[in-house]
Every structure is written in C-alpha cells, then in structure tokens.
Computed example of a mutant assay.
Amino acid sequence: MQQAVSAIEARGAGASAHENWPFAVEQATPAIGAFIGGIDLRAPLDEPTYLALRRALIRYKVLFFRDQDITPAAHVALARRFGKLEIHPVFAHHPDHPELVLFDKSDKKRGRENIYHSDVSWREVPSMGSILRCVECPSTGGDTIWANMALAYENLPGDVKARLDGLLAVHDMMPLFGAALPPEQRITLRAQNPAVTHPVVRTHPESGERILFVNEAFTTHFANYSEIAGFRFGFDLKLAEMDLLQYLFRQAAAPEYQVRLKWERNTIAFWDNRAAQHYAVQDYYPAVRRMMRATIIGDRPV
C-alpha cells in the first residue's frame, strides 16, 4: 500500500502542479473531478499513460474525457487495462460484449439511478471503478453528480468518527433490484446474491485514505450497532441506529463534496467507485439517454 495521505492532500491543486502528466489535466472542482485532454482512448494505453491515469483517478476520484468515439470493443479493452471486468446480474448487456451494461432510457423507460450510490457495493468484492460512455443524450438534462466520500469522512465531527470505529453495515441489492422482478426471479436472484457486510469506513487500498462507505441505494442497516453503541431499550436503540445511518447517507448530498457533469455524445467518465458515490439526475424524461458502462472488479473493503 502506498503512503497514506489525507483527502485534502490527495485532491490538492498544489500536488497536481508538481506532477508531470503525459496528458492535459483541468481540475473540475476543488473537491473532486478532472477533465483529461490530449489523449485518444481508442488506442491501447502504454504503461506510462496507464500509470498516470491510475494516479489521476486516485487523486481526482473521477476523470472526464470529451470526444472519445470508441467502439464497444475498445471500451471493454480500455476498462480491462485496469483489471478484470464484471458481468451485472440484472442490467441489459451489449449483445457482443456482456461486460458492457446498457442504459437505454426513453419515453418507454424512465431512469431509476437517481439516488446516491456506490456501484455494486452489494457484492462481497465491490468494484474498483466504472467507465461510462454517453452514446446519445438529451440537449439538456441527464447530468450525473459525483461526491468525494473520502472528503466526506474527513470532515465528519470527531464524535461521529468515534461512533463509526468498528461499525459494520449490511449491503443488499434486493430492495432496489428485486422489487421489479416476479417472485420466482426474485428468489433466484437472492440465492445468487446474498446480502454482504462491509466496514462503514473503509481504507483505500492505494492511497490509504479513509472513506465513508455506506450509500442509500444498497446499505440497509448496521450489522453490529447494538454491540458498538450499547443497549438501552429497544425502540431507542433502533431510532438511534436509523438516525445515524440517515445522517451518513446525507453526506453525499453536500455540494461542497461534488462535481456535476453535463454529458455530451462520446463523453466518458471514469470514476473510482471505492472513493466516490454518484447520482444520475432524472430530469430528462421522456427524452432519449443511452449509455454504456464497463465495471472493473475491485477488492474486499477493509
């Protein structure tokens, strides 16, 4: 593991000034995000460029690339450069590339991703990152927001941080994905994807940053709240647990931790799913919004 740095140091503009990037970097907000230029993602990444992009991803949490007219095969190859790829058990896939998830929204299908979340946190080994390309998008609306959850943790009051020490949370895909399925499919999905437990605060395996790792899409409850908090009486304990979890969920919604991207055709966003949450703004219905996403398998949170 690399030497640990604070969330502020990891995103600092001063650090960027001393980095000899092999591409153009324009920081998007003080908290998170950078636009990357002078790079053609259709071509395989050489080792120096790959390593530099990985460093930039860790620092800025989400990288934006404009005018990247890549094929689905090139999209998969780009993502595979950063690790093994997952196949999502629910979303539609590209017919030739099952690693590519298809988001195809129109007047016939409204978007449902408008909730702050970390992709597949319901897996025992959640994703390292996702690479999302805009195939077709409305002229206005359909933006995506990302939030820096390392900064969110760093800015928590000290007494809250103390309450989170050793706390575990349960992540479950079923409340979001299972509700739309018929009972027999729901039973199969549950058998294949049991709920999992992760630390409420995880450590980034590359930067050493501490990251708030609960999200309102998939985190259902704490696994060991009564052991950590101590028991008084039933409803008091449960209300305190719910209050704390809701408080942690709200951290992602702070504008000070966010960047908002206006999509254009052939824009690509590559985010560190270990350290960022995102929210797809559903304000464009009934317009067409088509996206493709490849998701890179990560590591078990610790």
Results as ranks from 00 to 15, higher is better:
residue 215 N to Q: 07
residue 248 L to G: 00
residue 43 A to W: 12
residue 141 G to L: 05
residue 84 K to T: 14
residue 65 F to I: 09
residue 114 N to P: 06
residue 245 L to C: 02
residue 140 T to R: 15
residue 185 Q to T: 14
residue 189 L to W: 10
residue 202 R to E: 10
residue 124 E to G: 15
residue 90 V to D: 07
residue 24 A to Y: 09
residue 119 D to K: 07
residue 288 V to M: 06
residue 254 A to G: 11
residue 201 V to T: 05
residue 216 E to V: 01
residue 127 S to H: 14
residue 82 F to W: 00
residue 1 M to N: 04
residue 268 I to M: 08
residue 210 R to K: 15
residue 123 R to D: 04
residue 178 G to S: 06
residue 128 M to H: 00
residue 135 V to M: 02
residue 64 F to N: 00
residue 123 R to L: 06
residue 72 P to K: 04
residue 141 G to K: 03
residue 238 K to R: 15
residue 186 R to Q: 15
residue 282 Q to I: 02
residue 222 F to H: 04
residue 145 I to E: 01
residue 118 S to C: 14
residue 11 R to K: 13
residue 180 A to G: 15
residue 89 P to L: 13
residue 292 M to L: 03
residue 258 Q to S: 02
residue 103 F to A: 10
residue 254 A to M: 12
residue 151 L to Q: 09
residue 170 V to M: 01
residue 72 P to I: 03
residue 1 M to F: 04
residue 238 K to L: 15
residue 229 A to H: 04
residue 161 K to H: 02
residue 130 S to I: 11
residue 245 L to M: 05
residue 149 M to H: 07
residue 239 L to F: 14
residue 203 T to C: 08
residue 213 F to N: 09
residue 292 M to T: 02
residue 156 L to C: 12
residue 173 M to W: 08
residue 288 V to N: 07
residue 176 L to H: 15
residue 281 V to S: 08
residue 226 S to W: 03
residue 194 P to Q: 11
residue 220 T to S: 03
residue 132 L to H: 01
residue 239 L to T: 13
residue 29 T to N: 09
residue 99 E to Y: 00
residue 75 H to V: 07
residue 228 I to V: 11
residue 253 A to K: 10
residue 101 V to M: 11
residue 284 Y to H: 13
residue 218 F to L: 13
residue 276 A to N: 04
residue 14 G to H: 11
residue 164 L to Y: 01
residue 290 R to S: 06
residue 244 L to F: 05
residue 231 F to N: 13
residue 268 I to P: 05
residue 258 Q to Y: 00
residue 63 L to M: 07
residue 195 A to D: 10
residue 169 A to F: 03
residue 202 R to A: 12
residue 288 V to E: 05
residue 288 V to K: 09
residue 193 N to A: 06
residue 100 L to E: 05
residue 68 Q to R: 05
residue 169 A to T: 04
residue 233 F to L: 11
residue 27 Q to P: 13
residue 76 V to K: 01
residue 175 P to H: 14
residue 39 I to L: 15
residue 99 E to D: 07
residue 48 P to N: 14
residue 130 S to A: 15
residue 287 A to E: 12
residue 257 Y to F: 15
residue 201 V to N: 01
residue 221 H to I: 04
residue 264 E to R: 07
residue 51 L to W: 13
residue 273 N to G: 06
residue 262 K to D: 09
residue 188 T to P: 00
residue 21 W to A: 13
residue 215 N to F: 03
residue 64 F to L: 06
residue 75 H to I: 06
residue 34 A to E: 02
residue 161 K to S: 01
residue 179 A to I: 14
residue 170 V to T: 09
residue 77 A to F: 01
residue 249 F to N: 00
residue 290 R to T: 09
residue 104 D to S: 08
residue 80 R to F: 09
residue 80 R to D: 12
residue 301 P to G: 00
residue 88 H to F: 02
residue 34 A to Q: 07
residue 147 A to S: 15
residue 283 D to F: 09
residue 89 P to H: 11
residue 137 C to W: 01
residue 166 G to S: 10
residue 277 Q to V: 02
residue 292 M to V: 02
residue 301 P to W: 00
residue 59 R to K: 12
residue 177 F to A: 11
residue 264 E to A: 06
residue 291 M to V: 00
residue 15 A to L: 14
residue 73 A to T: 08
residue 270 F to E: 03
residue 159 D to L: 13
residue 131 I to R: 01
residue 191 A to T: 15
residue 289 R to M: 05
residue 115 I to Q: 15
residue 12 G to H: 08
residue 56 A to K: 12
residue 30 P to N: 15
residue 49 T to F: 03
